[in-house]
Design a protein around this nucleic acid. Structure first.
Lengths: 142, 142
DNA sequence: AGTGTAATCTGGAATTATTCTAATTCCGGC
DNA sequence: GCCGGAATTAGAATAATTCCAGATTACACT
């Protein structure tokens, strides 16, 4: 089984024909490979231009289709900062995003161990969270 | 001094000529009054149509201008859910937003007392947060 | 291998929220 | 009351994303 957490750039051909119930086409493989290759939170347009270098015929609409398919099958996460264009992230672990205002770069930020949202937020009984997004901006340290 | 936390709908005329360093014009008063009147997180368009009932000559561009002025002077907060249009919230206390998927309604959610982000997130030393947005979706309880 | 059917891909048009522009109007200070 | 800068306005422009309709591809069954 291919781990999505591997560090080196994968070949699109290495993905099995079916990932998490999503049929992997040539284009979906390529889009996924692009996202895994550089974990820099590219926009749809970034993905498009990178994918084009290996697959000149791919269209932007297809990139959007593939991204939507990958996101809805939870192979990739969609990341939003305010009204900026969406970005895409292959890190499937629970985490949030920090945009450094000086560099523009986006960093993954993990939760400290054992943190549960119910401990932090005043949520009414019976609340079920289906989706959570935490976005930070500022000066990223170190 | 006018409290932005008051419960009844304010008259636009009640705002002083200068709020937090922002010169209050007729339109800005109206937009702010609209946002304070119903705390239902309206979009720019919602604000526009509500403002029009009392001020038929106001334009959508002006609503956008006013919202941007109010947000940048921290009289109002801008709220984003994924790629949906921005919404506006007069609650200036630290809080986050929960969109109930059944009703579409957005609820303010407070942090439990004493919660500090540094206790929750693995942020590198020296990180300074200038902006934070937490958006949740799901079934809101109670 | 050949055919039928459904899914996917493609390029371009359409949509939508938001921003820009240029002309007009307003307001506070002289 | 006038001046100058700020704010407002209507409409055009922009940008990200989605839609559409036709072409292509892939799988399932023979």
């Amino acid at each position: 089984m291919i781990s999505l957490e591997q560090q080196k750039a994968p070949n699109p051909e290495d993905f099995p024909p079916d990932l998490e119930g999503l049929r992997m086409t040539k284009q979906r493989r390529e889009v996924l490979a692009v996202i895994l290759a550089e974990r820099d939170h590219p926009t749809a347009n970034d993905v498009f231009s990178r994918a084009q270098t290996r697959m000149p015929s791919i269209s932007l609409a297809t990139v959007y289709n593939c991204l939507e398919a990958l996101v809805s099958h939870r192979l990739v996460r969609q990341v939003n900062f305010e009204r900026e264009s969406s970005r895409y992230c292959p890190n499937l672990a629970d985490h949030c995003h920090f945009q450094d205002e000086a560099s523009g770069k986006i960093h993954d930020v993990n939760f400290k161990k054992g943190v549960k949202l119910e401990d932090i937020l005043e949520l009414p009984q019976g609340t079920e969270i289906s989706h959570l997004e935490i976005s930070l901006k500022g000066n990223f340290g170190k």
